[in-house]
Structures are given as C-alpha cells and as structure tokens.
Design a protein around this nucleic acid. Sequence first.
DNA 1: CTATCAATCTGTAACGTTTCAGATTATTGT
DNA 2: ACAATAATCTGAAACGTTACAGATTGATAG
Lengths: 352, 352
Amino acid sequence: MDTENRNETADDAEAGRPTLKTLAFMTGLGVTTVSRALKDAPEIGAETRRRVQLVAKQIGYRPNRAGVRLRTGKTNVISLVLDTEEQIGGFVSDMIYGISEALAATPYHLIVTPYSRNNDPLEPVRYVVETGSADGIIISRTEPDDKRVRYMTERGFPFATHGRTDMGLEHPYHDFDNHAFAAEAVRKLAALGRSRLALLAPPANLSYYHHMRNGFAEALADCGLAEVPFPAATVDHSIEQIRARTRELLRRKLRPDGIVSGAGASTFALVAGVEDEGLGIGTDLDIVSKQSSRLLHLLRPQLHVVNEDVRLAGSELARAVMGRIAGAPVASLQTLSTPTTVESYRPGIPPR
Amino acid sequence: MDTENRNETADDAEAGRPTLKTLAFMTGLGVTTVSRALKDAPEIGAETRRRVQLVAKQIGYRPNRAGVRLRTGKTNVISLVLDTEEQIGGFVSDMIYGISEALAATPYHLIVTPYSRNNDPLEPVRYVVETGSADGIIISRTEPDDKRVRYMTERGFPFATHGRTDMGLEHPYHDFDNHAFAAEAVRKLAALGRSRLALLAPPANLSYYHHMRNGFAEALADCGLAEVPFPAATVDHSIEQIRARTRELLRRKLRPDGIVSGAGASTFALVAGVEDEGLGIGTDLDIVSKQSSRLLHLLRPQLHVVNEDVRLAGSELARAVMGRIAGAPVASLQTLSTPTTVESYRPGIPPR
DNA sequence: CTATCAATCTGTAACGTTTCAGATTATTGT
DNA sequence: ACAATAATCTGAAACGTTACAGATTGATAG
C-alpha cells in the first residue's frame, strides 16, 4: 500500500494551522473519516474516534470557520443589532457582557451591527439576513407591531427580541416586566402618601411604553390616585430636554408630588429639573426610578429605585436565539424578568 | 460557440443569492473576468468593467465573505477585546459606537471578544491570532510592558491599543492625555486655593496610571502643593470600596482639601464618601474629575469636570487598526487626545 | 505575409469543510 | 465454503472566491 502518497505528502501537513488534512495525515486516515470522527458520527469505530479526537486535542485543532461556513452556511455568529444613537447610560455594555457570558462556552461569536435611529431600523436586519452574515439576530427597541419581527419571521430567520411584540406572532424574547415595575412604583408612592403622579415614559412607539403606561394607569386607578400628564418628555430625550420639560411640568398649577421614571439616566435630568425649581426630592415630591446601573442612590439617597438586570437580559437573549437556532420550541424561549421590590435608603445612612 | 454550456446552465444562476457565477452567466463572461472587473483590475476592458459593475449593482451582488475568507485569509473583521469585569460606567458603549462609526463605510465587521479580568488577558488575543478570526485587534487596559502588545508585534499581527506602552516598540495607539488632565486638574485646584491634594488613580499596572500620576506630581511641584497619599483605592474598585476608603482618607489628621478623580463612576463614590463624613463639595474640598458620560454636573454642580471623548477614541482606534492592516506607517496611526479645559458650573445655574 | 506583441479574456486549481455514493473489510447465517 | 450483511472507512464533488498560467484576438512591425 502506498501510504506514502495517500493524502498528499507530509509537506502539506507541515506548516501553519492544522486542518483536517493534517489530522488525516497524522492518523493515517481519510479526511472524511477524521471529519466524522470529530463530530461523533455513528459509523466511526470507537477506537478510531478516540484516537482522532486525542490527536486533534493534542495539536490543538480548530475547525476553520470559513471552511465550515462556506460548506454549510452556518456562520456560528450571533448579531446584536444596535441603535448607535442610544443616550448615555451604558445600558449596552451590560447587554454585551451578558451575551458574551452566554456565548462563552459555545462556538458562537458576537458581532455588533450598528444602525442610526434616523435610518430604517429594518436596514441592518435585512443586511444580516440577506448576506447570511449571522445565524441569529438580537434586536431591541421592540415595537408592538415590529417590521423587523415580521420580516425575520416570514423568512424563518432565528432571532430574539429584547421586549415583546403584539402582533399575534410567537417568537423568542426576553422582557423586563415594566407593567409590574410601574404598578409597584405607583403603590410605593401611594404608600408614601403621594397622590398626583407623573410618568416619565419611554417613546410611545416602543412596546414597553404600553406596558409601563398600563401598569401605571391600573395602579393609579387601584389606589385612587390622579395622573399629572407628562407627555412632553420621554426617556429617549436628551438630558437637557428632560430637565427643561420637567421644570415646565413643575410650574403647572397642579404639579405632581410623585414621579415614576422609566430610566436611570433620565432620572438624573429629572432630579436636576426638580431642584432647579427649588423643590426637594423626598420632601416636596418622591421619585421612583428604574435603573440598570446602581448609581441613583448616590445621586440622591432619597430616590426610590427598582433594578433592571440588563446583563441577565443579555444572557437570556443569547440563550433564546441559540435555542431558536437549535430548533427548541418557542414557548420555552420567552422569559420575563420580574422587578425587584422598590429599594429605598434613608437619607444619610449609606446602604449595606 | 456553445454559449449554452459555458458556465454551467442557467439553472445554476437562478436561485438564492447572486454569486460570481451568476454574474458570469448574466454577462456572458468568465467568472475570473467578473471577479477582476469588480476589483478594477488593470487587464479588463473599460466597457466590460462598467458593464459588469452595472449588473452587479443592479442585482445587488455582495461577495460571499466565507468564500473570500477561505481563499484569501482576509476576514474583514476587527476584534474588540473586552474585559467583561469592567465596572459600571458604560464606557464600553461609546467605544463600540465610535468603532462602528469608523467601520460603517468599510467592509469591516466588528466582533466582540470577551475575557474575564481574572484570566490571562493574553488568552483572547492568542485565540484571535491563532485562529485568524480577525484581521486586526483593538485592546484596552494597556500596560507599560504589555504581553499582548509584544505577542502581536512579534507575529506581525495588526492591532491598536487604547493607551500607550513603554517598551521601545512602535505600534498604533490612541490615548487620552492623562498627564495633561491631571496637571490641569491640579492647577485648577491650586487656583481655587486648595493645597493638600489626593489622587484617585487607575490601578498601578496600567499605563495611564503612570501618566496621570506624573502629571499630578509635576503640577503639584510646580504649584508648590502637597500630596495626601490615597493608594488604598483605584478607579477599578467597587463603588462601595471607594466610598469606604474615601471616608478613611478624610478622617486622617491632615485630610485633603482637593481631590483629582480619574473616572466618572468613581467620583460618584467619592462624593458619597465625602458627604458621609459631613463635608461639602465646593466648600470643605473641591473635586476635579474626568468623565466620559456627562452626568457629573447633575450629581453635584460643584464638581469640576474634564470630558474624555471615548466615542472619538473608538473611531481613532478603528482607523488605526485599519491603517495598520493597509500598511500605513505606524507613526501616522498614533493619536493623543488633549483634554478640554476644566469645566465648572456655578451651583444652581444650569449649564447652557 | 508572417512573426511578434499587447490587450483581453478564460479555465483550472486551491483554500477547508461536509455530503454523497461507494469501497473495503470482517462477520454472520446457511 | 459462499453469499449476504453490517461495520468501517474512503475519494470526489461542491460551497464562492482568487491566483496562476494560459488562450484568443487584433494590431503592429519586419
């Protein structure tokens, strides 16, 4: 037998990164056999399998991603589609860390696909799907009737959304229970004896606007409290805008004595506006705010906060897309994160 | 001539995403010609070139990345190597936005390669280099004598660092001038009549620790001021730790009347510590802090701040790696960002 | 009129992987 | 002893791209 010339000469396997051919040469097997042995295919002898895998481990074989991708179409990439107009707040870092965490023990890589809020949000999604540059997509800023969700669903492209939709389509998602958050917040303010509440809400096109608004409205009704409308500002506005609008809000004849804020960074502006008007947090009015980074109690200890774990959201979303790719039932890929109870610190007493 | 059967039949070019073969079929040319026409190779007729490019644009041809990558080894990917233990502060978001901005008009994609600070920082770099999963790398948390820099330099692998090194190796970098920042900060405090200054510095292993420290020390000497040592805390410590250490610092017999803080998030903790001790910012002592998000003047208007544009850093770094990949001279890929002058707001007066 | 040359174009092979359709054994039943 | 079968293994082809080494044409020079 001409072992000498079975799979090219030894030279081929010499330099550079080991490939299947290298393994084939070293084991004396065919490249096909090696390929199958590595993925535990059934028709490979137990000993051969072990032998191949041993050698592969020894020489540190890593499948060439381009080869796999070209042949199979599988990219082993998850794309995080990001709005780069995102306001201050660092929300995104945690999300990325969370995703990375979930991807760490898998062959998946994370690729960031940016878009500007001013452009069509469908554009980056279409790009990824059309060019097949990822196996799955994670999107945020989800809308009740979301073009992107429809697009990907129609094409059977795996994805998970940060936030739910409301269009009769089942798909993987992770969401923070903003309904519960707002309701909790209102009840807290009620317990504090506040009665005229305002809500600094998300922009009205996003899904969680409705959740938060409904939770707010329901709890308001439950507790018999009144709303002071505050439609002029959303958590998407700039710090300066929110600050200015807050001042206007507080100059009304019937100003609120309690505010629920949907985002940590916005609360910075809110507080500034309140104090610009010579009012005191915890005295003239109370604020309950959601936050993702734990800075608010350092801003003003009198603030009441509810923590949103965005890192967790990232992990969950990554798990969800991977689940979808692997064909898991969608129902098992939908998670809702329940807000913690409202945390309050007594002024002057540092938290544990 | 058997045009009928030149490059397979029409069927091949029918379904799915267009490839070079599709274009070859449509134009009646060979696949090689099409490939060259698209990249403006010299030996292609002017008309042919135009014709091919027109058709390509019309049908929305996009080169298959896996094909290119397999054939040429070029990935068209930049890897951002990230420490996922990063403290609060959202620093990373801006960096990513900046990089995305610079990559937007290029064929490059951004991939995030995470690592835990507890593990070997060389590990993710080695992974990328060994598997060839990117054409270039961006790293941060640069050290004066940086293993990663040495590793990549030895292998001729393109990279850019956020922060400079000091090991006699030329390489692309972007850095914020922390020396100038610290010096500016000290001068500001001197001008405010402060005389005993402390520095909340970065961890001592990082390059910019030395820059900041030296700037601090030099300006201190220039102004004839004294230092109150504060080695117990760094900007990498947790909020709680910094807060506690700050309290200890302020309980010393000779406490500082001015503090320079190297990071925005740390300043939150610093302020809390100061106020825990019953001292007032702007009265008992002044603080000059660096910040990347513009929240500090909302925390306490009395704070003096210098802004670091991390988004810009991201763009510059991306440009630098791409330059390196394209073979630009290293000297042209080293940028230093000069700090703005110290911004101060008078209490109660909202900033423009 | 032929040889040379430049200008265009072309097919083949290769990158590393997986799938397909066998080929080679060894094992079994009769 | 022989065919049938199961258990292993195998080469060739293909994914889409680019580099290499020509082929074809028309024009130019001798």
